[in-house]
Design a protein around this nucleic acid. Structure first.
Lengths: 117, 117
DNA sequence: TTGACATATACCGATATAGACATATATATT
DNA sequence: AATATATATGTCTATATCGGTATATGTCAA
C-alpha cells in the first residue's frame, strides 16, 4: 500500500509546500491562475494541478471571470487541522507537564553512563 | 519526482492518520510501544516505523526503561503547523472578509446563466 | 473564422511510501 | 547460558505522487 491520496483530506493536501505557498498567496485575496504562476515561479500545469487538489479537499473555491478562473481560499477547511493541533497546544505552552518527565529529560542530557544517585 | 519524504517535516509526518492516532494516545502521557500496539490494533513493526518517522521530525521523544521504550509527545514540533494554520484562522472566523467576495458567492448560488446587471 | 490568451488535462518516469512478514538487537529471567 | 519479552530493522510489492511536456478546452479579439 502506498501513501494516502493527497486529496484524502486537508492534512494530506497541505503537506505539500507548494500548495501551502498557493494558499498563502490566495490569503491576500482572490487571484487568477496566472498570478499564482508568476508569484510562485511554477509551471502553469503544476499550479493547475495543485489547485485541483486544493479544490477537491475544499481548501479553495473558484469563480469564472471571462477566460480567467479566480481562486480564493476557503479557510474553513483548515479548521480540522487547527482543532486537532489545538489539542496539543498545552503540550508546548505548559512550562512543565509532569515533574518526573522533566527529571527524565535532565537525566538524559547528562549522558548515558552517568546515573549517579 | 515523488512526494516529499514523510520525515521532511511535521506537516508530512502528521498527514498519516495512524501517526496522528499515535500522537493522540501519547497525549495522555508517556507509553511503551506495546501499549500503542494494543491501543491502536496495529502490527508492532508498523508502530515502530511510525514512531521512527515521528521521532525524526521531533514529534516524539523516547526514554529507555529496561527493555521497554517509553515514548512521549513533544508538542512543540507541532507549533509550525499551528502557527501556519493560525494565519488563516480569521478566514473562517470573520463573518465577512470582503463584501464583493460575499456578493460573488451569492451570485454563484443563483446559478450560471444569471448575470443580470 | 482564425488566432491569441488562459487554464485544464493526459501521459510519462522516478521515487517514497505503508503494510506484511521475517529477523535482528537488547534486556530481563531462570 | 538459554529462553522469553520488547522493540527495531530489512525486504518485498503495489500505488499515488510530482514535475515536465504536449495537448485539449474555453473565451476573447479582429
Amino acid at each position: 500500500m502506498a501513501r494516502a491520496a493527497t486529496t484524502t483530506d486537508a492534512f494530506n493536501a497541505v503537506a505539500e509546500p507548494r500548495r501551502r505557498a498557493i494558499l498563502e498567496v490566495l490569503a491576500s485575496g482572490e487571484r487568477p491562475v496566472n498570478d499564482l504562476v508568476s508569484a510562485l515561479a511554477l509551471a502553469q500545469p503544476q499550479v493547475s494541478k495543485h489547485l485541483r487538489v486544493l479544490r477537491e479537499v475544499g481548501l479553495v473555491e473558484v469563480r469564472s471571470d471571462g477566460r480567467r478562473r479566480m481562486y480564493r481560499v476557503n479557510g474553513r477547511s483548515l479548521k480540522p487541522i487547527h482543532d486537532w493541533v489545538r489539542t496539543f497546544e498545552k503540550t508546548w505552552t505548559q512550562r512543565f507537564e509532569r515533574l518526573d518527565t522533566v527529571l527524565e529529560e535532565l537525566k538524559e542530557e547528562e549522558g548515558d553512563g552517568i546515573d549517579g544517585d
